[in-house]
Design a binder for these strands. Structure first.
Lengths: 142, 142
DNA sequence: TTTTTATGACTACGGTTGTAAACTATAAAA
DNA sequence: TTTTATAGTTTACAACCGTAGTCATAAAAA
């Protein structure tokens, strides 16, 4: 599991800060009002935990603090993706991508980039993906 | 968040049971010996929790119990994927798929199926994906 | 300067998770 | 039938999580 572990509730906070920074706790709470019925205290607790985890930097500005992200959104998303892929057999990844594709709306340009990438990968793709699971954790023949 | 919440440690157990069932706690533990240094008691605790969560069925067979999965692996993986996608802006999904593709080995046949699916999606794909985020949680212009 | 107020820090509390020892019931072996 | 090994259950406990009240302090207002 990754070190930079962000819980779902913390993730809500991070998304706000990734979008706008520097930002104060009050502003964060105001933005999240629409989505979560959190008391200001809750927002503060989550911010505090994120600071302790090294996800946010603080800078005192007069009476309030300004928060900034110390890890990028892309970085964090990629780690989530890694965690997801780690829990399934390598041979199932292709099928899973298909599932995602099916249930998502993807822009024309993204689809084009994906098509290009797939074309490129076809050249070196194996007939069968090698499974690296612990024997007994997938149905591949070892 | 989904009801069928499976923790990482529980996931290890489920993968064994999805692969082989019915199966006993001892057999599960033996299989996981290679990967996790769990005491038999740990395996039993996790099995117990999975039963309580309604993930496994039990059937007494002589002195031991046999476990069977009550949810399929695909179902569970799909829920994990949903949870992952739910925490990012819809406009970022394409890019994330690209990331997954880049870092994974995909078989020729899977790539082909993906290519076909992408071709099909291109026909109805929008120029720009509509963002449904809470304002302030992504950089899209609302 | 004193009072008000807003802000982060501390504390709390029930739930979940990872990890496991101790307990109990019971089938199988002696 | 008595013993024993084994299977599940109960209890444990620290860390993490969601949610939030309270407190101390410092800035702003009076």
């Amino acid at each position: 599991m990754h070190e930079h572990q962000i819980s779902p509730a913390e993730w809500e906070i991070m998304r706000v800060i990734w979008t706008t920074h520097p930002i104060t706790s009050k502003e964060i709470n105001a933005i999240l009002k629409e989505k979560k019925e959190w008391k200001l205290a809750t927002t503060k607790t989550l911010i505090g935990r994120l600071v302790k985890k090294g996800m946010l930097s603080t800078e005192k500005k007069g009476r309030k603090y300004e928060y900034r992200p110390l890890v990028s959104e892309k970085e964090s998303i990629d780690e989530s993706i890694d965690d997801l892929l780690d829990q399934m057999c390598d041979t199932k990844v292709g099928r899973s991508i298909e599932t995602i594709l099916e249930k998502s709306v993807i822009s024309k340009s993204d689809l084009e980039r994906l098509a290009t990438l797939i074309e490129k990968k076809k050249a070196v793709a194996p007939e069968i993906v090698k499974c690296t699971c612990t024997p007994g954790q997938c149905s591949c023949v070892h």
